[in-house]
Design a protein around this nucleic acid. Sequence first.
DNA 1: GTCTATAGGTGGATAGAC
DNA 2: GTCTATCCACCTATAGAC
Lengths: 201, 201
Amino acid sequence: MDATRPRRGDTANRMLDIAERLAQTRGFNGFSYSDIAADLGIAKASLHHHFPTKADLGRALMQRYSDSFEAALAGIDASGEDAYGRLSRYMKLYERVLVDDRLCLCGMLAAEYSTLPAGMRVQVRRFFEKNEDWVAALVERGRREKSLRPGAPARDVARMIVSALEGAMVLARSCEDPARFASSVRPVLAELKAKAVRKNR
Amino acid sequence: MDATRPRRGDTANRMLDIAERLAQTRGFNGFSYSDIAADLGIAKASLHHHFPTKADLGRALMQRYSDSFEAALAGIDASGEDAYGRLSRYMKLYERVLVDDRLCLCGMLAAEYSTLPAGMRVQVRRFFEKNEDWVAALVERGRREKSLRPGAPARDVARMIVSALEGAMVLARSCEDPARFASSVRPVLAELKAKAVRKNR
DNA sequence: GTCTATAGGTGGATAGAC
DNA sequence: GTCTATCCACCTATAGAC
């Protein structure tokens, strides 16, 4: 397997599962070891055996999240679809998180950025940079194969896309209207879709 | 003046100023009465005279923020510019907050939504709804006067714009690159600008 | 790996004097 | 309006037994 991915015991993994959901709903500062302990049914102090400090827990959380996100991107790359199809899939990735009543972990942590341990800040930044790079390459590909018709440099468009997705998640939740996500994001795809394929309005 | 806007003493207003900056940088759960007291140079307990609970403070914060935002929108409406110019101004509103090393108060509170007092949740939701309504009307106007060429329903485009702006702020800060905001937002304007005026690529 | 017990700190909030 | 003093709940984290 992957030497960079530490093998963890069952309790540690369940801790991460619980902490992940809490961080995605309440924020990293919005939950405590006590919440995890209650959910897991073990004593609060026992948790420190697996992750001595909350910063340790947070770093492990981000590492696992980034790894699984990267795997999802690789899955899209392996789909063989054109850039338009891949972009649709990429957007669905976000939507799936939202309908599970969560926000993107990194969107959440980005809001809390200034209160985050230094290690986590770097991880959050890298997550967005990786996403941006991946989307930028996708947009460039779409331009070449003519399945997308970007009206701005690929890098800028990529930033816009990631921004819109992250923003749409947060807004959809605070408006208590999950459907808002899809309607916020639809115009991005509509604008990017090659005009040749679109009906004139 | 305005009967709905309560007249407050000097200390109360300074409290709001300090709390606002703290909430926009660290989040509503990221600061305490102790932080405000230190900055203000008075005892922590004295603050409760002006805002008995933190929820009271939060509601006042949101009220003032919404009022001033609405005033800014009215200012844009009074500019006499076309829809494209107004949209540019609207985007600059966000940019100005970011270069002051802050995030949008509501973008921040939206991330913390699930931990917010009930009263504040309603205020956050209304803020976004008002913004969406205002931008949607603007997009519609742009379509009529042909300064904008939206490729999707005005309401959806409005949601996309607000999402992209809120998302771009958060991402720009966590990438520690304020210039990222402008480049993330540029494609939105570029796509919306009437094709007639654009050079072909 | 899990437990109990506890330390040391900070949070929001109150009482009552001035 | 501001102060000191204080309360209690909660936080992260540690010590040491089992």
